[in-house]
Design a protein around this nucleic acid. Structure first.
Length: 497
RNA sequence: GGGGUGUUGGUGGAAUUGGUUACCACGCCGCCCUCUCAAGGCGGAGGCUACGGGUUCGAUCCCCGUACACCCUACCA
């Protein structure tokens, strides 16, 4: 039985790259009939927050990725991790390093320091196995520890040979042991380090397939070494290409803000179906040319074979609000909004309208037909759920806003409208029965009688009734808005001229 | 400094395990439709498949080198 896991660290928000890892793990597990587990890697107590943990749960739920078994919190397993390190020391597979801890500078200097140290070590002929405590007799090591001397625990990496593993995406990966230093398993304050913790937890959770971001690819060799030292079976590994920013740099909150946070998409009116679909296409492609795929279809088609080796760029423009996020994702959301069966769209719609104070229970009962007609009419040109309460507000309430440009162009530009609009209102009121056809007839007759183009009245009506310069076919709008309300808004608009 | 991975039009991706004019989607431009804006239909621009060598009758595909990008290299995760 296949068992995979999603193991985010609860620092900040849920990153879309992490969300994609979750998706791929979920797809893989569900497709293979395996288990999808969740582990919160909250060992960095400084940076971990409850809010972030919540955003992980919310994000997974929003995306529809249900997990199996109990959630594992890594911090709860620290004792086991420590015990594993101690065991390795006892078995002589690891050793206590009594070298005093070297204080490091800030994060920004880490890379420089690494390079500097590497150069210095090369100059001095120091290699990765030169640690003076590596061959310290176990008795002496034990004694010094008992005497209260501080130590870190390091894994004894073999002097010769190479590490090899088969990656499900990138193929055979090899690395000389000489390039891997005796990694620290336990800090001198007793705190287990990442590589140890993941391996221990993955063993405890009986993970069979580790699917995660490519940023872990080279570290996998270290983890394999730990598995071997612990005598545990090594899982299959598969690494996913990274998602980069438009400049091909790292996609980070610091630099790019909300676009990288999954919750942003929920909050800005994305349909989970759509975002999930878009996410799936980042770093993976199905066999055919079909790109629009609901969850169950993604699940059927997903395969590691289709996962790419090269990173994907998440394309958006920080300067253009219309391109606040990836254009294709936005297009896909619009596509889902206008083509999804109404009953599937309804929950999201209801939530959006409720949040905006526009929802009425009648929409699901006595006014259901009207509601359905309205949604079908307006969703055609909407991109996000927010549009229903924004641009679409006039369909559900009277307190909508007028777009200044629309008012200028469609109302104020033609002074005669001040008289024409009330006249039109009168005609509209007399249409019987009132529907799109009779509204059209009334308007066209009125235009002819008044000697003006129908388009003038149509466009003026659009702004009068909806506050906008753009929208659906106007006669349908009259029908939707209704006779009384249409007439009222026409008269009110005349006052604005 | 060392190691790893990668590079197909602006973006996401194809191209039967080398075979004619490099395909699809998003975006962009134009036309049709038209009461606006979309949607839809039709059409178009945009690529010496990073660069340089090789192997081959033939290379996006195989090999070598270069450049660039990203990741790892930490008593961070």
């Amino acid at each position: 039985m296949i068992r995979v896991r999603f193991a985010p660290s609860p620092t900040g928000y849920l990153h879309i790259g992490a969300a994609r890892s979750a998706l791929f793990n979920w797809l893989y597990a569900r497709r293979e009939g395996g288990k999808f587990l969740l582990r919160i890697e909250d060992t960095d107590l400084q940076r971990s927050t409850d809010e972030s943990t919540r955003s992980i749960f919310e994000g997974l739920q929003w995306l529809g990725l249900d997990y199996d078994e109990e959630v594992v919190f890594q911090s709860a397993n620290a004792d086991q991790h420590r015990a594993a390190a101690v065991q390795l020391v006892d078995e002589d597979k690891a050793y206590r390093d009594f070298t005093p801890k070297e204080e490091r500078g800030g994060d920004a200097n880490v890379k420089q320091e690494i390079a500097k140290r590497a150069r210095r070590d090369a100059d001095e002929g120091v290699d990765h196995r030169s640690n003076p405590y590596r061959e310290l007799p176990l008795e002496e090591s034990k004694q010094r520890a008992a005497d209260g001397e501080l130590f870190a625990v390091r894994l004894k990496v073999p002097r010769e040979g190479r590490s090899v593993f088969e990656d499900g995406v990138f193929g055979t990966q090899e690395r000389d042991y000489a390039e891997i230093e005796d990694l620290v398993l336990l800090r001198s304050d007793g705190h287990p380090l990442y590589n140890l913790s993941v391996v221990c937890d993955d063993i405890a959770m009986q993970i069979t397939d580790v699917i995660r971001g490519q940023d872990h690819l080279t570290n996998t060799h270290k983890q394999v070494l730990i598995y071997e030292a612990l005598g545990a079976p090594i899982p299959r590994f598969a690494h996913l290409p990274l998602i980069l920013a438009p400049n091909k740099g790292k996609l980070s909150k610091r630099k790019h803000g909300a676009v990288v946070s999954l919750t942003t998409y929920r909050d800005r009116g994305f349909l989970p179906e759509a975002f999930r679909n878009a996410l799936a296409l980042l770093g993976w492609s199905p066999e055919g040319e079909q790109e629009i795929m609901p969850l169950d279809e993604l699940r059927e088609k997903f395969s590691l074979k289709g996962v790419h080796h090269s990173p994907a760029v998440f394309n958006f423009s920080e300067s253009d609000p219309r391109q606040w996020t990836d254009q294709k994702a936005l297009w896909m959301n619009a596509e889902y909004i206008r083509t999804m069966p109404l009953d599937e769209l309804l929950p999201a719609l209801r939530a959006e309208l409720k949040a905006a104070g526009l929802w009425r229970p009648e929409y699901e009962t006595s006014e259901h037909k009207w509601f359905e007609k309205t949604i079908n009419l307006i969703r055609e040109r909407f991109y996000t759920l927010k549009d229903f309460s924004g641009q679409g507000r006039a369909y559900f309430a009277d307190d909508f806003e007028f777009d200044a440009a629309a008012v200028a162009k469609n109302l104020k530009k033609e002074p005669r409208l001040k008289e024409l609009l009330p006249g039109l209102a009168g005609q509209i009121e007399q249409a019987e029965p009132f529907n799109a056809e009779t509204a059209e007839a009334a308007l066209r007759h009125f235009a002819e009688a008044a000697g003006v183009k129908a388009a003038l009245l149509i466009n003026a009506s659009r702004t009068a009734l909806t506050g906008q310069a753009v929208g659906p076919s106007m006669f349908e709008v009259f029908d939707i808005i209704g006779r009384e309300c249409s007439a009222r808004r026409l008269r009110a608009a005349a006052e604005m001229i």
